[in-house]
């Protein structure tokens, strides 16, 4: 299980780095919302992989909170943000 956790962790880290590029580069705020939403899913996946590897169930409330807050944040920004300057 250690090898699986390491391989999955490396893949998720690479995914997070790539997504961070999109968050930085944009060009529009909607692209950044897409990147943030993706990053939240990657973070939840990372927490789940760590919980599976360490057999520690105290991480589960953190995964729930991450899913809830991630959704609220993405929906709120998409709905209420100011239009981009062209």
């Amino acid at each position: 299980m250690t090898v699986v956790a390491i391989v999955a962790g490396v893949m998720l880290t690479a995914a997070a780095v790539l997504t961070s590029y999109r968050i930085l580069a944009g060009p529009s705020t909607l692209d950044r919302v897409v990147g943030i939403d993706s990053l939240m899913a990657i973070a939840a996946s990372g927490l789940a992989v760590w919980a599976a590897y360490s057999q520690d169930t105290t991480l589960l409330p953190a995964i729930i909170a991450l899913a809830l807050v991630g959704f609220l944040g993405s929906a709120a920004v998409s709905r209420f943000r100011v239009r981009d300057d062209q």
């Binding site: 699986v4 956790a5 391989v7 999955a8 893949m11 998720l12 690479a14 995914a15 790539l18 899913a41 990657i42 996946s45 789940a48 992989v49 599976a52």
Partner: peptide, 9 residues
């Protein structure tokens, strides 16, 4: 887990 991480990547 590995397949899920691959999809995320």
């Amino acid at each position: 887990i590995l397949f899920g991480a691959t999809l995320a990547l």
